[in-house]
Amino acid sequence: MRASKKIGFFIIPALLIYGVFYVYPTVLSLFYSITDWDGVSPAFNFVGLKNFINLFTNDTIFIKSLTNNVKFTLSASILQFLFSLGLALLLIKNTKSNVFFRALYFFPTILASVSVGFIWTFLYAPNIGPIDQLLKSLGLEWMIQDWLGDKSIAIYSIAVVKAWFHVGQMIVIFVAGLQAIPKQFYEVAKIEGASALQTFRRVTWPMIAPAATIVVAYTTIQTFKAFDLIYTMTRGGPNYSTEIIATNIYNVAFRSNKFGYAAAQSIIFLVIIGAITFLQFKLVDRYETN
């Protein structure tokens, strides 16, 4: 009992920090979500559930942001998952060149997201951007797009950047998972005459399920919360085509000074993230058990 009390004592600083910077603002957001506070004036009115009702019945931009979030999360997560798994399979052995390439792919992860946003804004720049220049030099002018200015493709252009940004991190997780698979399994599969695809389906894939769980959970939540890349590259434009919930909350709170309304949005956002995480872990748990 005394030992557990002592151990408990050591978590007080962490609890304090967590309480002050996470729990308290969340509770405060809950309180402000039922007000019309503008974030500046000392006075505000209680509006009950009006903000929440408006969010779902009278706010096209919020619904559009939610849709954009789903598009962005799905495309970025799928790209990131496939590329990281594919590259991890290629780079599984600890040869010098593989270690070099792993480090190379990991490099973008250490960059600040704002820097990544600026770099890719330049890469995507119309006419002078290296991507357009490359396509021109290859005689592929017909492929040139207004990467960040065309409302039908802008969100996917940013999803590519998001995938590029974090693919190295996921490669590391997959490589660790792949290297932990006992070699005997592959030897048995080989003796049994299994093809490469069958080996992957029956041996590799089930054995890297825990690593895949981490990758899927991490990428989904990270892409859902993505803010900095979108804000740096398009600020939600053109005409809200890249607006996601996080940028919408920021704009409503800090540009439009509707803090009460933005607090209601953030509460809904919290619930959505919580629901996705819960669902994801339940599904993965069931899959792993099977």
Binding site: D150, S152, P238, N239, R255, S256, N257
Partner: peptide, 18 residues
């Protein structure tokens, strides 16, 4: 003076250019 309205107005220009 309402920033949300301003965003909607400016968005219509980007929409036309799109």
């Amino acid at each position: 003076t309402d920033q949300d309205v301003q965003n909607a107005v400016l968005g219509s220009i980007q929409d036309v250019i799109s």
